[in-house]
Design a protein around this nucleic acid. Structure first.
Lengths: 198, 198
DNA sequence: ACTCGTTTATGATTCCAGTCATAAAATAAG
DNA sequence: CTTATTTTATGACTGGAATCATAAACGAGT
């Protein structure tokens, strides 16, 4: 969201996290603006039965964890490093000082919020109907479009495990495996060396 | 979001809609900021099978339809009057001029976006697991908290039909009816004259 | 090359929300 | 008041994703 040069100018700390390390946890007070510098970060929830739900996966230079700063609420989900990752961090107070001094950056941040709201609206609608094929295709199409990838058929490599797709769509691994196979049979996706192409 | 006196000062139009009338439609270009003056407005999608999904229901003085202004995308859902309703409308250009001139209002708008994102994140997580009881309770709890209602048990009257709850949770009416009965038996809600209290 | 943990794969079975049909109760319209 | 429409309610049946079990294929590490 914010250029690397500019963010360091603003006194951001750069933190390192190992794979599977927590950056913050659900229920904690929101104190910082975060932005991915390298690697990947996911936000997730766990249901009572232990089943994971992945709200989103972020890679550089996306920001995350800022909505609770605005809404003045606790974190509604955990942030966890999916891979070894580096993250910029700016204290809440500094962040707001900065926004007020830079209306155009504030607008960028608002745009980021609106974009994520859009994604969530689409996913909520898709999750509400239980059809596994649509759930999976929507996630894949979203990722493809996010990656600003050409819209050519079966050229976008989906870099997610079947389990991650399951956790993003609320399905079970077995269902994802079976559904992706059936989608491949319908020529909606292609499977090459176990990787999914959309 | 914005006070009635202030919004008229800013040259907002006030429009009237009959029950079930469309304010805008999915896929249209976003040209205005909207705010409810009276009545209720819902945003919804229709699946291929004709099943409705209600993204949210708004009443005064909540704003709606502004995320696409920021994200510069088409409307991802329809806006429809649930009851006879009045709505303020400000052209996109004026809206942004206004935001840039009033950083504190821009902050309010960002807060509104963040709050809705929060709601959607919770609902997405809840929709992803198929347990009907949790889906319904989450919606009810959210509405109760939104109404800034006391947290006393079974004092909040849910002013939704079973069908609306179904469309908000992605369940079927029959399932909602049966699940609410079973929730009443477990003392999670109370049913008085067919109305649900949480 | 071998071991261990992860990921993908497949079959059999269960369970529960969806579906369909039908109707009573409540509310709106005339 | 009477009729029409909407909302709530119930029972019987079905379908399909979850669940459980088991195993093959792959990748990381030694």
């Amino acid at each position: 969201m914010i250029s690397a040069t500019e963010i360091t100018k603003f006194g951001a700390e750069k933190l390192s996290f190992q794979k599977d390390e927590y950056i913050f946890r659900e229920g904690e007070k929101a104190l910082y603006y975060y932005q991915v510098a390298s690697g990947e970060v996911k936000m997730n929830n766990y249901h009572e039965d232990g089943k994971e739900f992945i709200q989103a996966i972020f890679s550089a230079p996306r920001s995350f964890g800022e909505p609770p700063l605005f809404a003045e609420i606790e974190y509604p989900a955990n942030a966890v490093a999916v891979t070894k990752a580096e993250v910029y961090r700016i204290p809440k107070k500094e962040f707001f000082k900065w926004l007020l001094a830079n209306p155009s950056i504030h607008l960028q941040v608002s745009k980021g919020l609106a974009t994520r709201l859009h994604y969530k609206a689409i996913m909520a609608s898709e999750l509400s109907q239980q059809n596994p094929e649509n759930r999976i295709l929507r996630i894949l199409d979203y990722l493809k479009q996010q990656a600003k990838h050409s819209s050519k058929k079966h050229t976008f490599k989906v870099d997610l495990t079947r389990q991650q797709i399951a956790d993003l769509t609320g399905l079970r691994v077995e269902t994802v495996i079976r559904t992706i196979k059936s989608l491949a049979a319908k020529n909606e996706v292609e499977i090459i060396e176990r990787k999914v192409y959309r």
